[in-house]
Write a protein that binds this DNA or RNA. Sequence first.
DNA 1: TCAAAAACTTATCCTAGGTTAATATAGATA
DNA 2: TATCTATATTAACCTAGGATAAGTTTTTGA
Lengths: 193, 193
Amino acid sequence: MNHIDKLVEHLRRKIKLTDRDIGLISDSFKLKELKKKEILLFAGDRSTHMRFITKGCLRSYYIGEDAKEHIQQFGIEDWWINDLYSYITDTVAKQFIQAVEDSYILQIHKKRLNELYVEIPLFEHFFRIKFERAYVSLQERTINSMSKSAEERYLEFRSKHRSIEQRVPQYMVASYLGVTPEFLSKLRRKMGS
Amino acid sequence: MNHIDKLVEHLRRKIKLTDRDIGLISDSFKLKELKKKEILLFAGDRSTHMRFITKGCLRSYYIGEDAKEHIQQFGIEDWWINDLYSYITDTVAKQFIQAVEDSYILQIHKKRLNELYVEIPLFEHFFRIKFERAYVSLQERTINSMSKSAEERYLEFRSKHRSIEQRVPQYMVASYLGVTPEFLSKLRRKMGS
DNA sequence: TCAAAAACTTATCCTAGGTTAATATAGATA
DNA sequence: TATCTATATTAACCTAGGATAAGTTTTTGA
């Protein structure tokens, strides 16, 4: 299955698309190949595209005032990844987006996406729902990070995202959970595995 | 200025509305009065309405596994307040919404709002942007809570939301910041005020 | 106007998680 | 195959913030 087909199948799980719609979509999204460690978006630049992963694994992270990396999100096949903050508000990104493995993404420019909202009204509907879901999962993450212990967060991450845990180095999981790699290591020993 | 006028003015800052639109809106939103401490939404119920504050001050909070209240959001005049998670996903709310002062809100049922999206297309546009902003401010909050100290978060809260700080008890600010009232008290003394 | 309740402070002791630094192990690449 | 570089672990010690338990002050409402 080619890259555009993956995107179309993803969209079709939520909205109906005509052949005309698919033509518009094919012409609007551009494929980009990324080598492991390649950076797709730099903090300081503006995020002008919406991005859909068709293959591989990426992460978004920001550099805190402590000069350390904090991972905000992982993304694998069939996920969208972005610095939504920058994209939405047209401000410079605070986050980097980097390929953790060799990857492929399909991206569409914001300007073109806004046109598509008009050309395909269900597309705006799709993205309203997408932003709602993004909000929901961010809220879960916020609540978790504020009211659960690192051990609880780790257990939850393992059960929800086992496939990601197996693809990224452990220090990135630690960063995602908001603890040091040393502490995660300590936890793992304590938990017996 | 009456309650509906406040809502209309709020909407007009973002989208154009015809007289017909305003008629539809007036008929769709219902006014609700709340006495101080009255609970608008109970955890365990479903949040079936979108809610706009025309007067007063409310808070949303959940009871953590530690059996303590964690405030997620404050809202004052001209803000929307909700358990968006419950509203969006049609699941039972994890949060309570309670009046901190005597308040008035305008609320619209989700079913009716979805109809309005069709009757007034700009309304869906308005709410897409609203969800985007909700996402953005939640992301700021998450990043803050994970990478800043309680003291930094308190200073930021004070400068961004002085008007709220003056209207709610200090233990609620502590809860919003994710610290105990005792610790906030300690901080305030250390900071000299 | 005066109890009772709500909010705030202080002090002591305690713990989750951080820091630093040294060592171990595993991939990669020449 | 040997060597670099990226990960992961361990251990000793440190700190931000929590728990508990008294107080004190402020607000409320009969």
